[in-house]
Lab assay of single mutants.
Amino acid sequence: YHADPSLVSFLTGLGCPNCIEYFTSQGLQSIYHLQNLTIEDLGALKIPEQYRMTIWRGLQDLK
């Protein structure tokens, strides 16, 4: 799967570019796929713990 530029820029902007593959490997290719994820969902996606809160907060800021 290839990540949408919106996803790449979002995660890169948060300092988490190495997390892109965790999302794309589950078929979550764009920022729209991420918008309703919970902190528990990020854990289920195996996002490293040190990035989960950062990503979750970033998603809240998009709403």
Rank of each mutant, 00 (worst) to 15 (best):
Y1A: 11
Y1W: 03
Y1K: 05
Y1G: 03
Y1C: 05
Y1I: 15
H2I: 15
H2S: 15
A3N: 12
A3R: 15
A3P: 15
P5F: 13
P5W: 12
P5L: 14
S6I: 03
S6F: 07
S6V: 09
S6H: 07
S6E: 14
L7D: 01
L7G: 00
L7C: 02
L7P: 01
V8L: 15
V8R: 15
V8G: 15
S9H: 03
S9W: 02
S9G: 14
F10T: 01
F10C: 01
F10V: 02
F10G: 00
F10I: 02
F10H: 00
F10R: 00
L11K: 01
T12I: 09
T12K: 14
G13I: 05
G13W: 03
G13V: 04
L14I: 11
L14N: 01
L14P: 00
L14V: 12
G15A: 06
C16L: 07
C16M: 11
C16G: 01
P17G: 10
P17H: 09
P17I: 06
P17R: 10
P17Y: 12
P17S: 11
N18F: 06
N18Q: 09
N18E: 12
N18S: 06
C19T: 13
C19G: 02
C19N: 02
I20S: 08
I20F: 03
I20M: 11
E21G: 12
E21A: 08
E21M: 05
E21C: 04
E21I: 05
Y22M: 09
Y22E: 06
Y22N: 11
Y22T: 09
Y22V: 07
F23V: 01
F23E: 00
T24Y: 04
T24D: 04
T24I: 07
T24G: 04
T24K: 10
T24Q: 07
S25T: 15
S25L: 08
S25W: 03
S25E: 14
S25V: 10
Q26S: 10
Q26N: 14
Q26W: 03
Q26R: 11
G27L: 00
G27C: 02
G27D: 13
L28Y: 08
L28A: 06
L28Q: 09
L28D: 03
Q29W: 05
S30W: 01
S30R: 09
S30A: 08
S30I: 00
S30Q: 14
I31N: 07
I31Q: 12
I31P: 09
I31D: 03
I31G: 04
I31A: 11
I31R: 08
Y32V: 15
Y32E: 14
Y32M: 08
Y32G: 14
Y32H: 14
H33G: 09
H33T: 11
H33I: 04
H33M: 07
L34P: 01
L34G: 02
L34Q: 02
Q35N: 15
Q35S: 13
Q35R: 13
Q35M: 08
Q35I: 05
N36P: 08
N36I: 10
N36T: 09
N36Q: 12
L37D: 01
L37A: 09
L37E: 01
L37Y: 13
T38G: 07
T38W: 02
T38F: 02
T38N: 06
D41C: 03
D41N: 09
D41Y: 02
D41K: 07
D41L: 02
D41V: 01
L42H: 02
L42E: 01
L42I: 04
G43A: 06
G43S: 10
G43H: 15
G43K: 14
G43T: 11
A44L: 13
A44M: 11
A44I: 04
A44P: 09
L45I: 13
L45W: 03
L45F: 10
L45E: 02
L45A: 04
K46M: 05
K46Y: 03
K46F: 05
K46E: 06
K46I: 03
I47N: 02
I47G: 00
P48E: 08
P48G: 05
P48W: 00
P48C: 02
P48L: 00
P48V: 00
E49T: 09
E49A: 11
E49Q: 09
E49R: 12
E49L: 09
Q50E: 13
Y51Q: 06
R52V: 09
R52S: 08
M53N: 11
M53C: 07
M53H: 14
M53P: 08
M53S: 11
T54G: 07
T54E: 08
T54C: 06
T54N: 04
T54R: 12
I55S: 01
W56F: 14
W56Y: 12
W56L: 12
W56A: 11
R57V: 03
R57E: 08
R57I: 04
R57Q: 09
R57N: 05
R57G: 10
L59M: 09
L59G: 02
L59K: 02
L59E: 00
L59A: 08
Q60Y: 13
Q60A: 13
Q60C: 06
D61F: 02
D61A: 05
D61E: 08
D61S: 09
D61L: 07
L62S: 07
L62G: 09
L62T: 08
L62K: 03
L62P: 09
L62E: 10
L62Q: 08
K63N: 04
K63A: 07
K63R: 05
K63Q: 14
